[in-house]
Design a protein around this nucleic acid. Sequence first.
DNA 1: GTCACGATTTGT
DNA 2: CAAATCGTGACG
Length: 165
Amino acid sequence: MAARVLPRSFYARPTVEVARGLLGQRLEFRGRGGRIVEVEAYLPEGDEAAHAWRGRTARTEVLFGPPGCAYVFLAYGMHCCLNVVAEPEGTPGCVLIRAVEGWGDGPGKLTRALGITLEQNGWDLLHSPLRILAAPAARRESITVTPRIGIRRSAQLPLRFVLES
DNA sequence: GTCACGATTTGT
DNA sequence: CAAATCGTGACG
């Protein structure tokens, strides 16, 4: 039978649960894709490193929209970073996709390899060429938790999740 | 309007 | 360790 996309209800949960749940799922875009093996959670509250920390602005608008949509932003003026909007609509949590199996590590390298750009910002992962297909959930014991990479504020929080081979 | 800075990557 | 490179948010 054909693979199916993860349902809206999967994303409408606490950000950390969505982050853990995304490990092992399959991200696809225009014929390219693979298993998600590294993610980071950016919380809707108390997280100074999250873009939503500064409030609702033009850039962060999609974070406040429906869960299950893509939030893409430009980092350092040259790299696009792909996030998945989590939490119920109105609550700005999101999960940064840092690595997809077979396409290299690093959020910037990943989007470049898959051809994801700012054009995909706001796209619905349930009804667009950019989608996440359901796969067996990662075993809890196969997930390593560490602090997030490349941030200064709230750098001590254990919000990076890596799926070990 | 102006300005400092960043959820990165790559080369020295 | 430093450059590349530019949109965003803070400040006035």
